[in-house]
Design a protein around this nucleic acid. Sequence first.
DNA 1: ATTTATTTTGGCACTGAGTGCCATTTTTAG
DNA 2: CTAAAAATGGCACTCAGTGCCAAAATAAAT
Lengths: 202, 202
Amino acid sequence: MQAQSAGFGSSLRKIKADAVAASLAATALILFDKKGFDGVTVDEIASACGISRRSFFRYFATKEDIVVSGHAAFGERITERVRAQPQDEDVWTSLRRGYDILVDNVDRDPEGAARTMRVINATASLRAHTIEKHIAWAVGLAPEIARRLGDADARRLEADALVHASFACLDVALAHFTPGEDASLSAKLDAAFDALRPVRTR
Amino acid sequence: MQAQSAGFGSSLRKIKADAVAASLAATALILFDKKGFDGVTVDEIASACGISRRSFFRYFATKEDIVVSGHAAFGERITERVRAQPQDEDVWTSLRRGYDILVDNVDRDPEGAARTMRVINATASLRAHTIEKHIAWAVGLAPEIARRLGDADARRLEADALVHASFACLDVALAHFTPGEDASLSAKLDAAFDALRPVRTR
DNA sequence: ATTTATTTTGGCACTGAGTGCCATTTTTAG
DNA sequence: CTAAAAATGGCACTCAGTGCCAAAATAAAT
């Protein structure tokens, strides 16, 4: 094994592992949707996927990770989008634009998104973990907002408050959005963000 | 057994059970603070409290409930306080005043509050469950805010956004508050609420 | 005070999640 | 084709949480 091919090879392997994980998650999600998150054991998922229970836990650290692990990647993309917004735009609007990443994702796969939302909303522990993943996004998001606000120490708490309030808007918009019925998640997000739009945001 | 004494007797028993639970929680919290939440087994807690493991689970449904079960009661008291605020006060201020319940509690027992906060902040799953408890407060809080806003259907989402954003402010204030060091939680709450104060809240 | 009904408790065995260890198979590199 | 590395599966274990039942404590009734 050489240092050169180590980095290359491992990234290839990671891609493959991610693809397998996505496939496992898709299978599991259908089961969760049908029998409830707690009504499906890991043994059941593993055999439905044709792998051993032990191998399953090499793809997902916990059963809940099947549902929420994808959220971490969204966080990075949302932060990227916010960072790409015009620097003179008010931060509240920039945050709102960041969540267009999620709107696009829901539009791209409405059935999958609806299924995931059904499963999460039906299970208390999953709701909590979803929120926790959102909070993890703040690690990347808050510094960017603080930078725009002037980065002074006094602005740190203000930036955190804005970022976490935007999570609240997202969660409320998601809660008020019924995939089949409502027109778009985008409109709900706009309504929530308008309700909170702060007086001064720069 | 008569219907009369049934209600009376059962409330007495509940009071006793609550007192026992509080005592168990106090013992467990000290252990958690010392060895970490995951470093303490339920067996350990039970024997430290002088009861059996099985009896322990009659006082707390889950190990996490030891830390977060008290939060439900706070929710009711916060809602009560908000409801008692002047009806013509803007709702954002009313929400802020609701959290004075928590400020008072921290002031009343600084060491206990600090210990609980240490334990929660050191454990991801506890953070998630704390957030979830906060969200449960919305069940009582949101209708009150919606009523003040006019109760129209269009105001429902607005009320939810305000309530959940206030949770965000609380969580940020708690995260920025170091019990020994900082002057008061109240000031942090004010700063967070001021950062978000909406343009129009009635 | 003694019996009776009710609650509380504890023990036991069980399920399910998650983990460490190791042998075996598969993949990859040379 | 062979040697190294990685993925897999099996096994046994810990710990959280639960159902069931018998024993002990508590309260009520005569």
